[in-house]
């Protein structure tokens, strides 16, 4: 039986880090700056759906995700993770942590042991580990499990992380930028595996990625973080309805666009594509057809970029969301 999917709830969560000098695995010292990674995050993560966690570098995505897996705990506020009515603090809580799999970039592996050793470790700790799936995925990604992580390329290490994320079958599976160094065919193979396994074994999946265009259609829900705050948390459908695009001759597009706020503009000779805020009304659709202008959906990427722009030309912050 597939275990109940896990959801999560965060209330007024603040995470502050102190400045620290730390040694990396290869022995070099790195300075971590002091700062506020999350600044008052209140968020519901629905169980059983694939949620996209988007944000620019330093927006607080990774910090948020590490809280759910008890890699870290908040400076202020509460984090609750669980199934059904049972939501608990993940910190030092084996019931939660054994049901939550966070994969960061390339996965957390034993650097000096073969990949197969790391997998044996996960297999022993993860209650729903599927060893056959792990083997098949490594085969698909062409990773030799007898190699040590240090002998693998960045892309292959990410494939190992991807394999852990899926094979753990955790009721809350978190994939934090698990694609670095993967080439496009491998990434698409990974997306296909996520969808196939998710359909077969329903669970909650949080997926953070910078490749918004590639993954936007995988999402049922979307969360956008910006500077440690939640900018937007809604269904992908609601987000999609925030805008649309027009492609066609400049003059026709201009007249159809009217006074709508423009999110993005791309010009190719006499043809222009603009992304606009709001929904097209019936007249727009008919008029567009008549004028030879193609009406298209809103690329999430354009909305995302617009929302998270540091400063707008008109002086307003990009973080302002009109509801």
């Amino acid at each position: 039986m597939t275990p109940a999917p896990f959801g999560a709830r965060l209330d007024d969560v603040v995470v502050r880090f102190g400045a620290q000098r730390r040694l990396t695995a290869d022995g070099t010292a790195v300075k971590d700056e002091a700062g506020t990674a999350l600044d008052g995050v209140t968020l519901d993560l629905r169980p059983g759906v694939i949620t996209g966690v988007l944000g620019r570098n330093g927006a607080g995505k990774s910090t948020l995700l590490t809280l759910l897996a008890a890699f870290n705990r908040p400076t202020e506020g509460t984090v609750r993770v669980g199934a059904g009515d049972l939501l608990e603090d993940p910190w030092e809580n084996p019931w939660v942590t054994a049901n939550v799999q966070l994969v960061r970039e390339s996965g957390d592996l034993m650097d000096d042991e073969r990949v197969s050793e790391t997998f044996k470790y996960y297999a022993d700790l993860r209650p729903y580990w599927d060893a056959d799936l792990a083997e098949r995925l490594l085969d698909t990604f062409e990773v030799n499990p007898r190699k040590k992580p240090t002998a693998l390329s960045r892309g292959k290490r990410s494939a190992v992380g991807a394999t852990i994320g899926l094979a753990a079958r955790a009721p809350l599976t978190i994939l934090d930028e698990v694609y670095l160094g993967m080439d496009a065919p491998t990434r698409y193979a990974f997306y296909d595996e996520i969808l196939a396994d998710y359909a077969e074994h329903p669970r909650t999946i949080l997926l953070s990625s910078h490749l918004v265009e590639e993954v936007e259609r995988l999402f049922e829900d979307v969360v956008v973080l910006h500077r440690g705050k939640v900018l937007l948390a809604e269904t992908a459908e609601e987000m999609q309805a925030r805008g649309f695009s027009l492609t066609g001759p400049v003059a026709a597009v201009e007249s159809l666009a009217g006074g709508r706020r423009e999110l993005h503009r791309q010009r190719l000779g006499a043809t222009v594509q603009v992304t606009l805020e709001g929904a097209p009304d019936g007249d727009t659709a008919a008029a567009a057809r008549a004028a030879g202008v193609e009406l298209g959906s809103l690329p999430l990427q354009d909305l995302f970029v617009r929302l998270t722009q540091p400063q707008q030309a008109d002086g307003t912050s990009g973080a302002e969301v009109r509801r």
Partner: peptide
């Protein structure tokens, strides 16, 4: 829905 999801790379719920 699964075939649809994987063929067109969309969320099965869609």
């Amino acid at each position: 829905t699964t075939q649809f999801a994987t063929t067109f790379r969309i969320n099965p719920a869609t």
